[in-house]
């Protein structure tokens, strides 16, 4: 057990601990903050794997984008500072069951894939990612890339339509 393995377990413990805190804490804002720490822990895991690009994207998208939006919507709700009531027992049991089911499902999928323990140094240039995104050949990602672009564009246009002032009939 060398130092990198110890680091892996530390980061994983951090992710799991903050994740559990996020669902068990009584205050909604605090659970958003714990979620944020969990996301940062995942980014840390990517850094540990030396996948800096993915780590940075993880921070930009989840920490800088999604968690900020969640916090914003919490700010806009009433009584965000109050302790939430304890959920009834049935709710707890069913959510636990759902969590366990999801976990086993993804665990089985990953287990069956069977990762081989490659010790080859992993070096990936960012420009390769960019080229792969626009690659039309085999194993290229041009189609998903374009589909996602169109989806995001549609979302943007939709936002503008919702936010636009409707001109009154007299004008």
């Amino acid at each position: 057990m060398n130092s990198t393995v110890i680091m892996f377990y530390c980061i994983s413990a951090f992710i799991l601990g903050t994740g559990i805190l996020a669902v068990t804490t009584g205050k909604i804002f605090r659970s958003a903050i714990w979620l944020l720490f969990s996301m940062m822990g995942i980014a840390g895991l990517y850094f540990w794997m030396q996948m800096e690009f993915i780590a940075a994207v993880q921070i930009i998208v989840y920490v800088g984008g999604i968690v900020v939006l969640i916090i914003f919507s919490i700010f806009l709700t009433q009584k965000s500072g109050e302790e939430m009531p304890k959920p009834p027992l049935t709710k707890t049991i069913f959510s636990l069951l759902a969590a366990i089911l999801g976990f086993t499902f993804s665990y089985l999928l990953i287990y069956q894939y069977g990762f081989n323990d490659g010790n080859a140094p992993f070096e990936l240039k960012v420009s390769d990612i960019g080229l792969k995104m626009l690659d039309t050949g085999e194993h290229g990602f041009i189609l998903p890339f374009e589909v996602i672009s169109v989806l995001l564009l549609a979302a943007l246009v939709g936002c503008i339509v919702i936010a636009m002032k409707v001109k009154s009939i007299e004008e």
Binding site: A56, I59, G64
Partner: peptide
């Protein structure tokens, strides 16, 4: 990219 990513943490 690292700079833009990390600078978004301070807003939290």
């Amino acid at each position: 990219l690292f700079l833009t990513a990390v600078s978004s943490i301070s807003v939290i």
